[in-house]
């Protein structure tokens, strides 16, 4: 198991390097002059030239590339072009904000949708099953930002039951932050419920029809024991994989929801960095999302290996 984890970590380092290279290429194909963009249209040309020299965007591409790779592995992304703040002071708070929203969304979504999937699988092709499947299909087919906008209009603006801005005031306690985050989290719950419920339903149906489930039943185990000890352990692997991928998306991809609720997570940080040509922030934030992706898939693999002895066995070879 230890070797398996080490192998995954080594592969993550390579992935990080590839990701850093892709980010570097992407930011260097963005059109325009960084100095002019940052200093504004009224800045003197001399100041623009001086700024570009100061931040190194007038250096040879290879030199800039080596610097950017060094930054990735030292986790020192320098200062934001836009605000002059250290990049870590921008992306780490954004990471925590994204984490808060993602955790709340998953804390609600995972138990509800897995339970709904199991419930539907055990009633395959019955009304309850169709209700879960169709509801899930309907909710997951609506873009999350549309759901967010509707929830915002109804619950926050019209009924005033939620907070329009999801960023709580500084100093708000953890419990006190929940009401602020609940409505955007619900938008994500609605978006992901169907997806995760259908995955778990499919896995459980496979498990219910498997030979090992039949053998376990013939051995005299109760339905509950068969479900807990055999079916769930096997059938949840695809669901866990899906969840791990969604974790990364929740950290960096929910720009629409963040925009609707004026929430400043990693998604909107990346968006703003792109539009303002803030390369250090863009690099730092994208790589942070990449690290989150890798960590979440690593954790998912470890959980799957823990749940499924066959995976552990393969990993140890």
């Amino acid at each position: 198991m230890g070797r398996y984890v080490l192998r995954r970590v080594a592969s993550a380092v390579v992935t990080l390097w590839v990701l850093a290279t892709i980010v570097f290429v992407m930011v260097n194909v963005l059109p325009g002059n960084v100095g002019r963009r940052v200093l504004g249209p009224f800045a003197l040309e001399d100041d623009v030239v001086r700024f570009n020299h100061q931040i190194g965007t007038d250096r040879a591409l290879i030199s800039q590339y080596l610097t950017s790779i060094k930054r990735v592995f030292t986790l020192d992304f320098g200062n934001s072009y836009q605000s002059g703040e250290p990049v870590k002071d921008i992306i780490v708070p954004a990471l925590f904000r994204s984490a808060k929203l993602a955790v709340l969304a998953f804390v609600i979504t995972i138990p509800i949708s897995i339970a709904a999937g199991i419930f539907a699988a055990r009633r395959q092709d019955k009304v309850a099953d169709r209700a879960v499947v169709n509801t899930g299909l309907a909710t997951s087919s609506i873009p999350d930002f549309v759901t967010a906008a509707v929830l915002m209009s109804v619950f926050c603006v019209h009924w005033k039951l939620g907070h329009v801005f999801a960023d709580p005031p500084p100093g708000t306690s953890v419990i006190g932050q929940l009401p602020y985050l609940l409505t955007p989290a619900m938008a994500l719950v609605i978006a992901y419920f169907g997806y995760i419920a259908r995955m778990s339903r499919a896995g459980v149906i496979d498990g219910l029809q498997s030979d090992y489930a039949r053998t376990a039943t013939m051995k005299g185990l109760s339905k509950g024991q068969v479900m807990r000890k055999h079916i769930l352990r096997n059938s949840l692997a695809p669901t866990i994989t899906v969840i791990s991928v969604q974790v990364g998306y929740l950290f960096g991809g929910i720009i629409g929801v963040e925009k609707v609720f004026n929430y400043h997570g990693l998604g909107s940080t990346i968006f703003n960095a792109v539009t303002s040509h803030d390369i250090p922030v863009l690099q730092g934030a994208v790589l942070l999302v990449g690290i989150v992706y890798m960590l979440s898939t690593l954790v998912a693999d470890i959980i799957i290996a823990f749940l499924n002895p066959r995976v552990r066995l393969e990993a140890s070879r």
């Binding site: 915002m152 209009s153 926050c156 005033k160 329009v164 801005f165 925009k259 609707v260 004026n262």
Partner: peptide, 16 residues
Amino acid sequence: SDDLATMVSGLQGGAA
């Protein structure tokens, strides 16, 4: 905010 819809919602929803 750089989104007018968000700003409008903020005012109408009592956040501003």
